[in-house]
């Protein structure tokens, strides 16, 4: 058999296998369908073959990046989590996935990229800490602009200046959507029958980050937590299909969260020593280069004697200067 396909995903956090909903969709579906993928969890989208995450590199060296395309590809490889569904149930999944994309997604974008508290304290912080050095300054802001643009286009012409009104409307739509999902799920373990299908993967992927992230502004999160069947649906899937990540988080929380008061978070920067050293080095570098730049005249005088010909830019400049003087 050929080598397995390679899946590139964002790293996980908060006890989730990945932080991005799109990555979670693919991961969950692959788990449900039992597809053997070679998983690469990275925190640098530039190292993915498509430049974005998630990305699937198939063994024919094709690259797929939309979750729907990846699921279709897996389905063609006979890894089909929807195999047992009747046609009617398949139609229902398609409809509920659309409901999620139209109603829940805009609110989730707002929740993590527009709401300033959540963006600064959770989203930007996570990406800034996990992206490698020069990118951590560039990418979070760029990702935010992209998300804002997506939200603006999803909502049509209106600008995002609506502020609170827009937030209320988006959150009301999303709460409605969660209520509908909760009603549809009822007391069952999965949306259809005893095994999870693609709809379960999508619902889990959208809701789990909302449930697990520690958000300072948790209006939407509160609503999800109040819907018990939906929140236990997410936790169940985490425990059943991603036991490794779930255990890691509960273990990690026990050791790290109790001594941490809310405000003391800033003292617990990971790799503190290394970062201090880095900043000292950067400062030294800046000072040195400033010194060199301002002192360049004296250095060049010394070099001029050593080198026979003056540097090329001087050569071109000097005759020009002379010409101008001659004309004047």
């Amino acid at each position: 058999m050929a080598a397995p396909d390679e899946l590139f995903c964002w790293e996980g956090a908060w006890g989730l296998p990945s932080v991005s909903s799109d990555c979670l969709t693919v991961l969950a579906y692959a788990q449900f369908a039992g597809a053997p993928l070679k998983l690469r969890k990275i925190s640098n989208p530039w190292r993915s073959p498509s430049g974005s995450l998630p990305a699937l590199r198939t063994n024919q060296n094709e690259t797929l990046s939309r979750p729907a395309d990846i699921i279709i590809h897996l389905r063609k490889q006979k890894f089909n989590a929807d195999y047992d569904l009747s046609a009617r149930e398949g139609a229902d999944s398609l409809a509920f996935i659309s409901l999620l994309e139209e109603r829940l997604k805009p609110a989730l974008i707002y929740n993590s990229w527009v709401d300033s508290k959540n963006y600064v304290e959770v989203t930007r912080r996570w990406y800034a800490e996990h992206l490698p050095f020069p990118l951590n300054f560039l990418l979070p802001g760029r990702m935010q602009r992209q998300q804002l643009e997506t939200l603006r286009l999803l909502r049509g012409e209106e600008s995002l200046e609506g502020g609170e009104e827009l937030e209320k409307e988006l959150y009301r739509e999303a709460s409605d959507c969660m209520n509908l999902l909760s009603q549809r799920l009822g007391a069952r373990k999965f949306f259809f029958r005893d095994s999870p299908s693609s709809l379960d993967a999508y619902v889990f992927a959208y809701l789990a980050p909302l449930l697990k992230a520690k958000l300072p502004n948790g209006k939407l999160q509160q609503h999800l937590k109040s819907l018990e069947n939906l929140s236990s649906f997410c936790s169940n899937i985490l425990l059943l299909y991603f036991p490794h990540d779930a255990r890691e988080s509960s273990g990690g929380q026990k050791s790290s969260s109790p001594p941490q008061p809310e405000g003391g978070d800033y003292d617990h920067v990971p790799n503190k020593r290394r970062k201090q050293l880095m900043s000292v080095l950067v400062a030294l570098g800046a000072m040195l280069s400033y010194a060199v730049l301002t002192g360049i005249l004296s250095i060049q005088h010394m070099q001029k004697e050593a080198l026979e010909a003056p540097p090329p830019d001087r050569q071109t400049l000097d005759p020009l200067d002379e010409d101008e003087e001659g004309d004047g």
Binding site: A95, S98, E101, D176, Q183, R184
Partner: peptide, 18 residues
């Protein structure tokens, strides 16, 4: 009923979405 209304909304979004 509630489940039917949920399904109705979902199918309406399906039409809008696709």
């Amino acid at each position: 009923d509630d489940v039917q209304r949920a399904e109705m909304k979902a199918y309406m979004e399906l039409v809008n979405n696709m």
